[in-house]
Amino acid sequence: MPYQNAVLDDQKLQDALKKINPRFGDFCTRVAGEAWGLPLIDQKTKALITIALDVANQDQVGTGSPFAAHVNMAMQQGATRAEIEELLLFMCVYAGFNKAVGCFGTLNDLLGPST
């Protein structure tokens, strides 16, 4: 079942952020939790937007990968792999093919090869 607030209702996410750094985790939870609590854009759409930003910012690798966390968040909010793949294809046009290909690779690492 999707969370009402993908940050404030996800204790596992909060614990992972605090594991990176306790103050960082607390700060992210408070600030992002407030942003995710804004009422006009649904949680699934917000999660897909964060993936698009990860593509544009090239943030899909490394410890605490925002891309991995955002893929997980989107799927918890009801997004499908097919929707995420279509988003990555769409981002090829606006962020660049070379940025999107790395995200496709990381998506395969996270979810297994696409069929």
Score class of each variant (00 low, 15 high):
32 A>G: 13
11 Q>S: 10
58 Q>F: 08
84 I>P: 04
23 R>L: 15
78 G>P: 06
20 I>N: 06
26 D>K: 08
37 G>R: 09
82 A>F: 02
82 A>L: 01
84 I>C: 04
76 Q>E: 15
13 L>H: 10
67 F>Y: 06
91 M>F: 02
41 I>Y: 01
66 P>K: 08
67 F>G: 02
32 A>C: 10
56 A>R: 00
43 Q>P: 06
28 C>N: 05
47 A>G: 02
22 P>W: 03
8 L>F: 10
83 E>P: 03
28 C>A: 10
11 Q>T: 11
22 P>M: 07
16 A>S: 14
69 A>G: 13
18 K>W: 11
18 K>G: 09
44 K>R: 02
23 R>D: 15
15 D>C: 08
72 N>D: 15
58 Q>V: 07
47 A>Q: 01
66 P>N: 06
86 E>D: 13
32 A>T: 04
28 C>D: 04
82 A>Q: 13
8 L>E: 05
55 V>S: 00
74 A>W: 03
92 C>K: 03
64 G>A: 04
21 N>S: 14
70 H>F: 08
84 I>S: 00
19 K>E: 15
40 L>T: 13
22 P>S: 06
53 L>G: 03
2 P>E: 07
27 F>I: 08
24 F>N: 08
77 Q>K: 06
40 L>Y: 10
39 P>V: 05
80 T>L: 08
80 T>N: 07
59 D>G: 07
53 L>W: 06
48 L>I: 00
85 E>M: 03
41 I>D: 09
